[in-house]
Structures are given as C-alpha cells and as structure tokens.
Design a protein around this nucleic acid. Sequence first.
DNA 1: TTAGCAATTAGCCATTTAGCTAAATATGGT
DNA 2: ACCATATTTAGCTAAATGGCTAATTGCTAA
Lengths: 116, 116
Amino acid sequence: MGKVFQALSSDIRRKILAYLSASSMTAGEIAERFDISKPSLSKHLGILENAGLVSSEKKGQFVHYSLVEDNLLNTLNSFIHEVCPCGKIYVEESREKARAQTPGREVSQTEKPQRD
Amino acid sequence: MGKVFQALSSDIRRKILAYLSASSMTAGEIAERFDISKPSLSKHLGILENAGLVSSEKKGQFVHYSLVEDNLLNTLNSFIHEVCPCGKIYVEESREKARAQTPGREVSQTEKPQRD
DNA sequence: TTAGCAATTAGCCATTTAGCTAAATATGGT
DNA sequence: ACCATATTTAGCTAAATGGCTAATTGCTAA
C-alpha cells in the first residue's frame, strides 16, 4: 500500500492517471500531452506500473498503458477503513439524510455518479 | 489536494493518522508510540496539519492532535471521481449484484461497514 | 523567580526524487 | 542489411525529504 500512496503523491502522476481514465494510450501519446521529456515520463509510468495503478502491453514498437481502476479503488477504500473505521458510516448517513430532505441541492463530491 | 497526497505518501504519517483514529492525543503520547525523535515527529504532525488532515489544540503546555476525518474522506472521494468517473458505477453495481446473489459471502473491503 | 517539562525551531547531514541529455534496445519498413 | 521510430536505461545535477542533536519558546509549579 505504501507504494500506491508514494505513486499518488506526485502531481504529474495523478494527472497521468486522470489522462488515462478515458482510454489507453501509448507512452508517446502521454509524453506529448505533458511538458516533460520522454525519459522522465517513462520513469513516472514505471512507478505507476510498479504500484499496480497502471498496466502496460507492448504492441509492436509501441507500449500501451491503461489504468487499473480496481487497484486504486481498493487501496483507497481499505485505507479509509483503516483510518476512519467508525466515523465513515455517520458521514454517509448524514449525506443520505441531506439528500433525502433537499433533493437536488446536495451535489457534493461524494454523491454517487449519475446513471448515464 | 496535492498537499494531502504528499502528506499521505509517508508510511509513518499514515500510521499516525491511524493511531489518531480512535482518540486525540498529545504530541508527546504520539512520539512515545513511534520510534522517532520528538522534533522529527513534530515535523510530521506539522505536515499533516498543513494538509488539513489533523488539527491541533493547545491546552496548557500540551498540544492535543486529532484526526480531521472529513477532509480525508472528501479528498479521496473527489480524487476517485476525477480519475475513474465512469467505471466506478459499474464496479459498485457489480459488487451490489454479488452481494445480492450470495448474501454473507461478499466481504470485500469496499462493502459498507456494519451498523453497530 | 527559578527549575522543569512539553513542544517546536534551527541547523546539519545522508538519502531520495525528479528532471535533463546521451546512449542503448527493440521493432518496422525499405 | 539498414535506417527511422518508440521506448527505456545510464549517468548526471539540483532540490526535496527525513532523520538527528542542540537550542528556543511557553507554560506550570515550587
């Protein structure tokens, strides 16, 4: 778990994860998007992959990278349970109540994403 | 948000957060628990406080530290929505289905905590 | 007011991190 | 075989991190 948080501690690495959220990309495509040299980016991708947040597949001379969503979600979730094992349910219940009482007004970040 | 992840990237700082999850403590009490000098620990507490993950209150010659649960939950949640905005609902639905089909068997980390 | 304890700040050193350029390692096309 | 392209590895430097001890600040109590 330390490796995951270490990986997430860098601004550019979090941006890379967000950039990969919609689709897989080659190392080159990612490097174009961010103002950084290819070797530097390669190292970041290596760190993300080593943390299990990203997976790579070589296709010919290209390497395609994609997000491993499950690892991210599971790690953050298990961390939350480690650190705030008791308080979480009250926060959740509070938000549910707020949602129920003033529907459409509670638009916090923690609200469930809409169904398509 | 960068500050929060930076703070979370350290092993000992995550341990401190976990240690504070049950109750507030003075800097000295925390320092006793971890094999580290008081000045070093003080710096860690400063980083956690600066990130908004911990709050401090001076009482006489002691400084009491306590966890700020909300900031942690909100930051992680908003990050998740940033990085996996679309896939999350499918993961959730999948888990709900699994839970419905084999009640009592699905005990993953992402399951809701029990009501007292 | 002076002694003593809690906590933080200052100053120092070793290690790690993040960036770069140049070189090496594929792979594909001619 | 040979050259061009994609990516990673090597090797370097500057800056950040994390630890320590010693010194400082603030408070309590004798």
